[in-house]
Design a protein around this nucleic acid. Structure first.
Length: 156
DNA sequence: GCCAACGTTGGC
DNA sequence: GCCAACGTTGGC
């Protein structure tokens, strides 16, 4: 018996890794997350098959641009052990890795970007606790309820 | 490029 | 364990 499918939103800067990049490679290890709360969502919350809203940040029109699927259980982020990587963490060890990731698989590109400013206009329907529209929230991986998932995609 | 809002680090 | 300094995120 499998647990109910969960939903998430994952941010990425399109200059670094975009929805087009994911479409090309199909599956990508979501490396480089160096925030404990975001790590915990990946390590403790995600299951294979969960839905992901793919979000572009730090760009002209930030917003949701596609959907993806969690394609693996959490496992240690190899880049934390690589001294040449931007994501190297000298305090992490293989015995006790600090950072985990999941593989993310391409699902589809939306027919249009659902912009952040439009999402904000629906904050009431989404709930004031929705982390994406809470002021000052910088979490790059955050949970989305089934109702929020459905509502956000209905804006497409 | 600016800067508010955080999160992390390290001295004490 | 406090908290100032510093670094990062991400909208604008």
């Amino acid at each position: 018996m499998s647990a109910r499918r969960r939903y998430w939103l994952m941010k990425t800067e399109p200059d670094t890794f975009s929805i087009d990049d994911l479409e090309r490679v199909r599956t990508e290890p979501w490396n480089g997350v160096r925030n404990y709360q975001a790590r915990n969502f990946m390590r403790d919350g995600m299951q294979v098959g969960d839905g992901v809203l793919f979000y572009h940040s730090n760009t002209d029109v930030p917003g949701i641009v596609g959907t993806a699927t969690v394609a693996s259980k959490a496992y240690p982020d190899e880049s934390q052990f690589d001294a040449k990587s931007d994501y190297f963490d000298p305090k992490s060890t293989r015995e006790e890795p600090r950072w985990f990731l999941v593989d993310v698989a391409f699902d589809r590109k939306l027919s249009r970007t659902i912009p952040l400013d439009e999402i904000k206009q629906h904050a009431g329907k989404l709930g004031e606790d929705f982390a994406l529209v809470r002021r000052g929230n910088r979490l790059s991986v955050l949970p989305v309820s089934a109702a929020q998932w459905k509502y956000l995609l209905s804006l497409e």
